[in-house]
Amino acid sequence: KEQQNAFYEILHLPNLTEEQRNGFIQSLKDDPSVSKEILAEAKKLNDAQA
């Protein structure tokens, strides 16, 4: 469930490039146990690119 939530949120971050988004999603698939950390990174990058 946590992985699904992170997946959904990353898909809807407006400021990520397609490449960045795909990278985060691939990381989620590779290691779902760190989905919280991956989501935090994605949000940080999204904010930095706002």
Rank of each mutant, 00 (worst) to 15 (best):
S27A: 11
L13H: 04
Q3E: 15
L39P: 00
N22W: 10
Q26R: 04
N5E: 11
I38L: 13
A40E: 15
I38T: 06
Y8F: 11
R21M: 08
E37D: 07
D31V: 07
R21Q: 07
S27K: 06
H12Y: 14
T17L: 05
E37A: 08
P32G: 08
L39Q: 04
N15R: 04
G23S: 11
A42N: 00
G23M: 12
E9T: 04
L45I: 11
I38D: 00
A6R: 04
E37H: 07
L11F: 06
D30R: 07
Q49F: 08
L39H: 03
A6V: 14
L11G: 09
V34N: 11
A50T: 15
K43H: 14
Q3C: 03
A42E: 00
Q26D: 07
N5S: 11
Q49Y: 15
Q20M: 03
Q4W: 12
E19C: 07
A48C: 11
F7G: 09
K44I: 11
A42Q: 00
S33H: 10
K43D: 02
K29G: 04
L11C: 02
V34H: 13
P32D: 05
V34L: 10
Q49V: 06
Y8C: 03
N22C: 12
H12K: 13
A40P: 02
K44Y: 08
P14C: 05
L13D: 01
S33R: 07
P32T: 05
Q3T: 10
T17R: 04
Q4L: 05
Q26V: 04
E18T: 07
Q26G: 06
S33C: 05
E19I: 04
L28Q: 01
I10Y: 01
H12L: 15
Y8D: 15
P14M: 12
A6G: 09
A40V: 10
V34Y: 13
A6Q: 08
L28W: 05
E37I: 14
A48Q: 12
E19K: 10
A50W: 05
A40Q: 14
N22H: 10
E19M: 09
L16G: 00
Q4K: 06
L39C: 02
Q20H: 02
L39N: 02
I38S: 02
N5L: 06
R21S: 04
I38H: 02
Q3A: 07
K36P: 11
K44W: 11
K29F: 10
I25A: 04
S35W: 15
A48S: 15
S27Q: 03
K36G: 12
E37N: 12
K43F: 05
L13N: 01
P14H: 12
F24A: 03
S33E: 10
K29N: 11
L39A: 08
